[in-house]
């Protein structure tokens, strides 16, 4: 998410400072977009950054759904630098070192039983001005460009292909009256229908990526990857649960209770209810396509 943004909007110094460590994996980033009262209506965010007149911003506020914020070295944040005009206009894009005094991270458990989300609090956090990406008050444009990359990523075609393969293995290992479920035409047809949808999306993904390789940034059409991709991710694990039968009731802390292939499936099934919500809910994605591609308003 943030790498392509720094490539597109960053200064030379920012590129030199951040990109090599993203590439090498030495620094892990988290995303500071959503706030308790800025979910789908992201532009109403209130975390503020105030110029202290000594070359820094002072950041105050709260971010939420900060995925794996407890492990991150840096956070890229949308902050309000001007509250006087239209709500989209006073937003800036700021990079914050998670070790800065005043940053507090509070992980929370998800329904999948994993601490995937965090609340991140900022209390008088001092951030040098050279960490501003793009123009002051011009963060909304940067934010939207990032969302295009995010949606393409969230489409998760590769992850779903892996999930589909695992699903087929589970169906092959699971038996009824001695016969693998994968040999049951009704089960095989359910899996094949899922594969039809996924393979079509795979080609749509290739089309988006090929366009990106020719220099076209992912545009509103990336929203279709997010919508169908998130649905398919959910459907893969839903079908896995169905095929597992009684084993679908297992939970990840009962090691050895179910075949190794099935471990974490119920947890992932639960957590994956998030896929149609995060990255802009699918309903928001549809609003975007309706407006920007179909011209409906």
């Amino acid at each position: 998410m943030v790498g392509p943004l720094i490539m597109q909007f960053g200064t030379e110094a920012q590129k030199r400072r951040f990109l090599p460590r993203i590439l090498s994996g030495d620094e892990v980033w988290c995303q500071g977009y959503s706030e308790p009262n800025a979910g789908s209506d992201l532009a109403s965010l209130r975390s503020s950054a105030v110029d202290d007149g000594r070359g820094s911003f002072v950041v105050n506020g709260q971010k939420t759904w900060t995925t794996y914020g407890q492990y991150a070295d840096w956070i890229f944040c949308l902050v309000r630098t001007d509250a006087s005009g239209k709500k989209q206009q006073g937003i800036s894009f700021l990079l914050v070192d998670m070790k800065t005094p005043g940053v507090t991270v509070k992980p929370m458990l998800t329904i999948g039983g994993t601490p995937a989300f965090c609340e991140t609090f900022f209390e008088d956090v001092v951030v040098p001005k050279e960490n501003l990406v793009g123009p002051l008050h011009g963060g909304w444009t940067v934010a939207k460009a990032l969302l295009g990359h995010e949606r393409t990523m969230i489409g998760g075609v590769g992850a779903s292909l892996r999930a589909l393969r695992r699903l087929k293995r589970i169906a092959r290992e699971t038996t009824r009256a001695g016969a693998p479920l994968l040999d049951d035409p009704m089960v095989a047809a359910k899996i094949a229908r899922l594969e039809v949808r996924l393979r079509s999306l795979e080609m749509a993904n290739y089309r988006t990526l090929a366009a990106a390789a020719l220099g076209h940034a992912p545009g509103p059409e990336s929203s279709i990857l997010k919508i169908r991709g998130s649905e398919i991710q959910q459907d893969c694990f839903e079908l896995a649960m169905e095929i597992m039968g009684h084993d679908a009731l297992s939970w990840h802390d009962t090691a050895g209770a179910v075949p190794a292939l099935e471990t974490w499936v119920p947890s992932t099934y639960c957590y994956n209810r998030a896929t149609t919500i995060y990255g802009g809910s699918n309903e928001i994605q549809k609003n975007i396509i309706a407006k920007l591609i179909l011209g409906l308003s």
Binding site: S200, L201, E202, I227, I293
Partner: peptide, 12 residues
């Protein structure tokens, strides 16, 4: 929008 998505998937 769902019609648009299916149009893109049929094409892909």
């Amino acid at each position: 929008v769902d019609m648009f998505i299916e149009t893109e998937l049929v094409k892909s």
